[in-house]
C-alpha cells in the first residue's frame, strides 16, 4: 500500500510561516510522500515562495509539487520553482518523477494545467489569436501530462498519480458557480489521464468545490484544495497489485 498525502491552495504569505509545519512534521507517521497541488503562494513572489520553501524544507517524506495560477501572477514561475527545488521539492511541469517507497516505484506526473471547460461546454481553438492560444496552452499542458504518465509507465511504476492544479473533471467543481467552470479546468486533462492511465488524479484550484470525482475512464479524482478538505492535508491509501 502507498500512502499519498496531498494538499493544494495553501496560499502562503509572510504571516503564515509555521502554520502548516506542525502538521507536516507528522507526515512520516501517516504518508510516504506529500503532493502539493499548486497555488502555494498568493502572488507568486519570491518572498512568498521562500515562506513555502521554509515550510517544507527538510521534511522526512519526499515532496512533489506543481505550481498554480497564483504562483504565476508575479510572472516569475521559474524563480518560484527554483526556490522550492532548493528546499528539496520536486516541481513538475509536463514531466514526471519516480518516488521510491520501499520496494514500490510510485510515479507522479504533473502539470499546472489550465482552463477551457468540459465536454459540450468548452472553449474551442477558433477565432481570435488570444482565444486559440488559450485552448492551445491547455492542450500543451494536457499533452505534457499524458507523455509524462506514459513515460512513468515505461519506467515500471507500479502506481501512477496525476498531479494538477486545474481540474480534469467537473465533478469536483460542484459547489462552484457553473458559469466559471471553464476557468477551473478542462476535459483535456481527463482525456490525457484516461489515455495514459493513472491510479489517482489530484488537483486543487476550486475552493468551493467538492473532494470526490471520477474521470470518464474511471480514474478517481480528488480535489485537495485546503478550503475543501479543511485539513493541512488529506491521505489516500492506494493498493499496489
Amino acid at each position: 500500500m502507498i500512502r499519498v498525502a496531498a494538499v493544494g491552495d495553501i496560499h502562503m504569505g509572510p504571516e503564515s510561516q509555521g502554520l502548516l509545519r506542525p502538521a507536516f512534521d507528522t507526515l512520516p507517521e501517516c504518508a510516504d510522500l506529500l503532493l502539493l497541488a499548486g497555488d502555494l503562494t498568493r502572488h507568486g513572489t519570491p518572498e512568498e515562495a521562500r515562506v513555502v520553501a521554509q515550510e517544507v524544507r527538510g521534511l522526512a517524506v519526499p515532496v512533489v509539487a506543481v505550481l498554480g495560477n497564483h504562483d504565476h501572477h508575479d510572472e516569475q514561475p521559474e524563480k518560484v520553482a527554483a526556490l522550492l527545488e532548493d528546499a528539496g521539492v520536486r516541481v513538475l511541469e509536463g514531466e514526471g518523477t519516480v518516488v521510491e517507497c520501499g520496494d514500490t516505484r510510485v510515479g507522479v506526473a504533473g502539470t499546472k494545467g489550465f482552463g477551457g471547460g468540459f465536454v459540450g461546454r468548452s472553449a474551442g481553438e477558433f477565432g481570435e489569436p488570444l482565444m486559440k492560444e488559450f485552448v492551445r496552452y491547455s492542450r500543451r499542458c494536457a499533452d505534457g501530462l499524458r507523455t509524462a504518465l506514459e513515460e512513468l509507465d515505461r519506467q515500471g511504476c507500479a502506481t501512477r498519480v496525476a498531479l494538477t492544479h486545474f481540474s480534469p473533471v467537473a465533478d469536483t467543481l460542484a459547489g462552484e458557480p457553473p458559469e466559471i467552470y471553464p476557468f477551473l479546468g478542462t476535459y483535456l486533462l481527463a482525456e490525457a489521464i484516461d489515455t495514459a492511465g493513472a491510479d489517482l488524479s489530484v488537483h486543487g484550484h476550486a475552493h468551493a468545490g467538492t473532494e470526490h470525482g471520477m474521470t470518464a475512464g474511471g480514474v478517481r479524482v480528488r480535489n485537495v484544495a485546503q478550503p475543501v478538505i479543511r485539513r493541512a492535508f488529506n491521505v489516500y491509501h492506494l493498493n499496489v497489485d
Binding site: R3, I10, L19, L20, P22, A23, T26, C30, D199, L200, R220, R222, Q226, P227, I229, R230, R231, A232, F233, N234, V235, Y236, H237, L238, N239
Partner: peptide, 14 residues
C-alpha cells in the same frame, strides 16, 4: 480561516 489540523483518518482507495 483554513484549518491546519492533521487528518484523523485516511481514505482507502482499493
Amino acid at each position: 480561516v483554513a484549518e491546519n489540523a492533521t487528518p484523523d483518518h485516511a481514505e482507502e482507495l482499493p
